[in-house]
Deep mutational scan, measured.
Amino acid sequence: KPRTPFTTAQLLALERKFRQKQYLSIAERAEFSSSLSLTETQVKIWFQNRRAKAKR
């Protein structure tokens, strides 16, 4: 499955949200993903990867 190329605007929004909160609830994820027109899975995986990156 090819990787999702996120737009610059989407990445900025994701990073901004991540700075506020490293873990999203299911409801927050649903709302946030639709506002960015991404799937919930894409947002979930992005947050997982971003948390892993923050640990390094």
Results as ranks from 00 to 15, higher is better:
residue 2 P to M: 12
residue 32 F to N: 00
residue 17 K to A: 14
residue 11 L to C: 15
residue 14 L to I: 04
residue 30 A to G: 08
residue 19 R to F: 11
residue 41 T to W: 10
residue 6 F to C: 03
residue 3 R to F: 13
residue 56 R to L: 05
residue 23 Y to K: 08
residue 34 S to Q: 14
residue 20 Q to M: 08
residue 9 A to V: 14
residue 40 E to H: 00
residue 18 F to G: 02
residue 10 Q to K: 04
residue 26 I to M: 12
residue 14 L to A: 00
residue 33 S to Y: 03
residue 48 Q to W: 02
residue 39 T to Y: 02
residue 53 K to Y: 12
residue 32 F to G: 01
residue 50 R to F: 00
residue 46 W to R: 00
residue 42 Q to M: 10
residue 3 R to C: 10
residue 56 R to F: 14
residue 8 T to C: 10
residue 25 S to T: 12
residue 3 R to E: 15
residue 44 K to H: 10
residue 1 K to T: 04
residue 15 E to Q: 01
residue 54 A to S: 09
residue 56 R to G: 13
residue 53 K to H: 14
residue 54 A to P: 00
residue 33 S to W: 03
residue 3 R to G: 15
residue 32 F to S: 01
residue 22 Q to E: 11
residue 14 L to V: 05
residue 55 K to T: 14
residue 52 A to C: 13
residue 39 T to W: 01
residue 4 T to N: 06
residue 5 P to C: 11
residue 8 T to D: 13
residue 24 L to S: 01
residue 44 K to S: 14
residue 27 A to Q: 15
residue 53 K to S: 11
residue 19 R to H: 14
residue 51 R to K: 07
residue 54 A to F: 04
residue 32 F to I: 08
residue 47 F to Y: 06
residue 20 Q to L: 06
residue 45 I to C: 07
residue 30 A to N: 09
residue 50 R to V: 05
residue 30 A to I: 11
residue 17 K to Y: 09
residue 4 T to E: 14
residue 3 R to A: 10
residue 1 K to C: 14
residue 39 T to C: 11
residue 38 L to S: 05
residue 20 Q to T: 06
residue 36 L to M: 07
residue 2 P to G: 12
residue 27 A to F: 13
residue 21 K to A: 13
residue 55 K to C: 08
residue 42 Q to S: 11
residue 26 I to K: 04
residue 2 P to T: 11
residue 38 L to N: 03
residue 20 Q to H: 11
residue 46 W to V: 00
residue 20 Q to E: 10
residue 27 A to T: 11
residue 24 L to I: 09
residue 53 K to P: 05
residue 10 Q to L: 01
residue 22 Q to I: 03
residue 48 Q to K: 02
residue 20 Q to K: 01
residue 28 E to R: 00
residue 55 K to P: 09
residue 42 Q to G: 02
residue 48 Q to C: 06
residue 24 L to D: 01
residue 38 L to I: 05
residue 9 A to C: 02
residue 46 W to L: 00
residue 7 T to P: 05
residue 37 S to Q: 10
residue 51 R to G: 05
residue 41 T to F: 13
residue 5 P to T: 09
residue 50 R to P: 02
residue 15 E to K: 06
residue 16 R to D: 12
residue 5 P to Y: 12
residue 38 L to W: 01
residue 28 E to A: 03
residue 37 S to R: 08
residue 9 A to Y: 14
residue 26 I to V: 12
residue 37 S to L: 12
residue 25 S to E: 09
residue 34 S to P: 06
residue 9 A to P: 08
residue 5 P to Q: 13
residue 19 R to T: 14
residue 35 S to G: 07
residue 22 Q to R: 06
residue 52 A to F: 03
residue 54 A to E: 14
residue 16 R to E: 15
residue 18 F to M: 00
residue 25 S to P: 10
residue 4 T to V: 11
residue 8 T to W: 06
residue 5 P to E: 15
residue 26 I to W: 08
residue 8 T to K: 09
residue 35 S to M: 11
residue 21 K to Y: 07
residue 21 K to H: 11
residue 48 Q to P: 02
residue 6 F to P: 03
residue 18 F to V: 00
residue 22 Q to W: 03
residue 12 L to T: 15
residue 22 Q to N: 11
residue 44 K to T: 11
residue 22 Q to H: 06
residue 23 Y to I: 12
residue 35 S to R: 13
residue 6 F to K: 11
residue 30 A to S: 09
residue 4 T to P: 08
residue 8 T to Q: 13
residue 33 S to K: 01
residue 26 I to Y: 06
residue 15 E to C: 00
residue 52 A to M: 08
residue 34 S to W: 06
residue 1 K to D: 15
residue 52 A to L: 07
residue 45 I to Y: 13
residue 44 K to F: 04
residue 2 P to D: 11
residue 46 W to Q: 01
residue 52 A to W: 07
residue 34 S to A: 14
residue 21 K to Q: 15
residue 2 P to F: 10
residue 47 F to R: 02
residue 1 K to W: 08
residue 49 N to T: 08
residue 41 T to E: 13
residue 31 E to I: 05
residue 17 K to H: 01
residue 21 K to L: 04
residue 56 R to I: 15
residue 11 L to T: 07
residue 5 P to M: 11
residue 33 S to T: 03
residue 19 R to G: 14
residue 42 Q to P: 00
residue 40 E to D: 10
residue 34 S to R: 09
residue 47 F to V: 03
residue 45 I to F: 06
residue 50 R to L: 02
residue 36 L to V: 09
residue 52 A to I: 02
residue 54 A to T: 07
residue 54 A to L: 08
residue 20 Q to A: 07
residue 49 N to H: 07
residue 8 T to H: 11
residue 26 I to H: 12
residue 51 R to F: 05
residue 54 A to I: 07
residue 4 T to S: 10
residue 52 A to D: 12
residue 27 A to Y: 02
residue 25 S to M: 00
residue 3 R to P: 13
residue 43 V to M: 02
residue 14 L to S: 02
residue 13 A to T: 05
residue 49 N to R: 04
residue 51 R to P: 03
residue 11 L to A: 05
residue 26 I to N: 06
residue 30 A to W: 05
residue 3 R to T: 14
residue 15 E to W: 04
residue 1 K to E: 01
residue 51 R to E: 11
residue 17 K to C: 09
residue 43 V to W: 05
residue 4 T to D: 12
residue 14 L to N: 00
residue 31 E to D: 05
residue 11 L to M: 13
residue 2 P to A: 12
residue 13 A to E: 12
residue 39 T to L: 04
residue 8 T to R: 04
residue 41 T to S: 14
residue 27 A to E: 13
residue 24 L to Q: 07
residue 9 A to H: 09
residue 48 Q to R: 03
residue 22 Q to T: 08
residue 7 T to I: 08
residue 43 V to G: 00
residue 32 F to V: 13
residue 12 L to P: 07
residue 24 L to K: 04
residue 22 Q to D: 13
residue 31 E to L: 05
residue 22 Q to M: 05
residue 6 F to I: 04
residue 44 K to G: 10
residue 20 Q to D: 12
residue 39 T to H: 10
residue 3 R to Y: 08
residue 14 L to H: 05
residue 55 K to L: 09
residue 44 K to Q: 11
residue 17 K to Q: 12
residue 41 T to Y: 07
residue 48 Q to I: 05
residue 29 R to C: 14
residue 38 L to T: 04
residue 32 F to R: 07
residue 6 F to Q: 01
residue 32 F to K: 03
residue 29 R to K: 02
residue 4 T to L: 07
residue 48 Q to L: 07
residue 32 F to P: 01
residue 25 S to G: 05
residue 27 A to R: 02
residue 7 T to L: 03
residue 34 S to N: 09
